[in-house]
């Protein structure tokens, strides 16, 4: 495409305005998830879906990744996959720590030690 030859990205203004509006709508949706107090798996999946959609539109359209060559896309977007390994490992580790804490420590005295000197508001 011509814009690649010139080394820069030029696209119709309408697409930016459309994405801008879309990001507003998606943000409103994620806020409403909290406002209406959805809990559990519904809350969890809605938050993640809206988050990933917003991230995709920002990277793809606003940051022009959708129009870049594959060499750049792969160089930037594949390394973060390593981070999924870190997140997975730390999740397992966190659950293990909770279990050991639940087994060996009484949680209630910890709370009162932490909030010592403060008034508990509720």
């Amino acid at each position: 495409m011509a814009e690649h030859a010139e080394g820069h990205q030029q696209h119709p203004l309408a697409i930016y305005l459309y994405i801008w509006l879309l990001l507003f709508v998606l943000s409103t949706f994620s806020y409403l998830v909290d406002y209406f107090g959805f809990q559990g798996l519904v809350r969890w999946s809605l938050i993640i879906i809206f988050m990933l959609m917003k991230a995709g539109f920002i990277v793809g359209i606003f940051m022009h990744m959708a129009w870049e060559r594959l060499a750049l896309i792969t160089a930037i977007l594949t390394p973060p996959i390593c981070l999924l390994v870190l997140i997975g490992l730390m999740n397992i580790e966190g659950e293990y720590t909770t279990k050991t804490r639940g087994q060996y420590f009484d949680e209630q005295p910890q709370v009162s030690r932490i909030v010592e000197g403060h008034e508990i508001s509720h």
Binding site: L83, L86, I87, M90, N91, E93, G94, E95, T97, T98, R101, G102, F105, E107, Q110, V111, I114
Partner: peptide
């Protein structure tokens, strides 16, 4: 964010 996730999942409080 991963550090945050870890302390949040591991705290018993």
């Amino acid at each position: 964010l991963t550090g945050y996730m870890h302390v949040r999942t591991s705290t018993t409080v």
